[in-house]
Simulated assay, not measured.
Amino acid sequence: MIESILSISEFKADASRLLDNIHDAPTTLVLTQNGRARAVVEDYEQHRAQQRALLMLKLMVQSERDVEAGQLVPQDRVFADLRQRLAADAPQND
């Protein structure tokens, strides 16, 4: 992924074109103010994909901790509980 650095004033002067560019190519814009990084601009879908990947990593770490601690539940019990919850939440046709 490409990372570009520009000042806030440069971004403001050409925001529409820059937003089109980051939508078309996976680029991250680092905006600076007084020479210091202040914000990051990236395509929304790119951001969502990164957030989903981060969530998956967090779930994997938590799962590894559960396994190490011996906090395991048999798969058939997990699915039975889910089916029961779904059945309880399903709208009743009277």
Rank of each mutant, 00 (worst) to 15 (best):
M1P: 08
M1S: 01
M1E: 04
I2A: 10
E3V: 14
S4Y: 01
S4L: 12
I8L: 14
S9N: 07
E10W: 02
F11V: 00
K12V: 00
A13E: 15
A13C: 05
A13F: 02
A13I: 00
A13K: 13
D14W: 03
D14Y: 00
D14I: 01
A15Y: 03
A15H: 10
S16I: 11
S16M: 13
R17K: 09
L18Y: 01
L19F: 09
L19T: 12
N21A: 13
N21K: 05
H23P: 00
H23L: 03
D24Y: 05
A25K: 12
A25F: 05
P26G: 03
T27R: 03
T27N: 09
T28P: 04
T28R: 07
L29D: 04
V30I: 15
L31G: 12
L31D: 14
L31N: 08
T32N: 06
T32L: 15
Q33C: 15
Q33A: 15
N34F: 14
G35E: 08
G35H: 13
A37G: 10
R38Q: 15
R38I: 15
R38H: 14
A39W: 11
V41Y: 11
E42S: 11
D43N: 15
D43K: 07
D43E: 11
D43Y: 11
Y44A: 12
Y44V: 14
Y44M: 07
Y44S: 08
Q46D: 09
H47R: 09
H47A: 07
R48T: 06
R48I: 10
A49W: 02
A49L: 13
Q50K: 07
Q50C: 01
R52E: 15
R52H: 14
A53K: 10
A53M: 05
L54H: 10
L54R: 13
L55Q: 13
L55N: 03
M56R: 12
M56H: 09
M56V: 08
K58G: 09
L59N: 12
M60H: 06
M60W: 06
M60S: 08
Q62F: 12
Q62N: 08
S63R: 07
R65L: 11
D66R: 14
D66Y: 08
D66F: 06
E68Q: 11
E68L: 11
A69D: 15
A69C: 06
G70W: 11
G70V: 01
Q71N: 12
Q71C: 03
L72R: 10
V73F: 04
V73M: 12
V73L: 13
P74G: 08
P74D: 13
P74F: 06
D76W: 09
D76S: 06
D76C: 05
D76Q: 12
D76T: 07
R77S: 05
V78R: 04
F79A: 08
D81N: 08
D81L: 05
D81V: 02
D81C: 02
L82N: 05
L82M: 14
R83E: 12
R83A: 01
Q84K: 14
Q84V: 01
R85P: 04
L86W: 05
L86P: 06
A87L: 10
A87E: 11
A88K: 11
A88V: 02
A88D: 14
D89W: 04
D89G: 01
D89Q: 09
N93P: 06
D94M: 02
D94R: 01
